[in-house]
Amino acid sequence: MDGQECVELFYTRNSRALSEAAEQYGTYCKSVALNILRSEPDAEECVNDALMRAWENIPPDRPDSLKAYLGSITRNLALDRLRASRAGKRGAGSEPLPIDELSDLAPSELNVESELELSELRQRLNAFVGSLDPESRAIFVRRYWYMQEIAEIAEQCGIGKSKVKMRLLRTRSKLREYLKKEGYDL
């Protein structure tokens, strides 16, 4: 069963949608959650929550890629869960996430409630990512979307950790310059 057939199951409110989605994309979603939460039980709960969220949102949502859709929900839920567990804790349990390295690249004046502003930023971000060479793009996305460790990225890309770090540093610098040039106040 491909992703679109599975989406149809969601649309027709067929409960098989959940088991099919879990079977096909559960491992993928769990790896996304695990990179963030670093806990198997938490990651598994997160995947279950993501599937339920998809059940609630499809329809009206109709994702082109169910895999990416579930992955995105999982990532958001995992981040929410991590933030909630960190709330009230200072010091212990508050190691930075890879994504924190990008915190100074979110436009300070951006209205996150404005679909128009978000749409413009989305367009520019993706144009930038699309302009990167394939290796730099893979490293950037694996680090900041998948939240992989530097060593894992280095191993999977077959390059040294220092090279990964340098690539990320350069890409962040380029993104900063690009967003500034596009008129964003960082």
């Binding site: 790896s31 995105s72 994504i99 978000l118 989305r122 793009r137 979307w145």
Partner: peptide, 28 residues
Amino acid sequence: MKNERDIMALLDDSYILEAEPVQRKQRK
């Protein structure tokens, strides 16, 4: 944006899928 100040939440699906890491169980 779902996660405030998380600009990566705006990434297109194609880039997410393109960069999918190798599953850990395959690694030594």
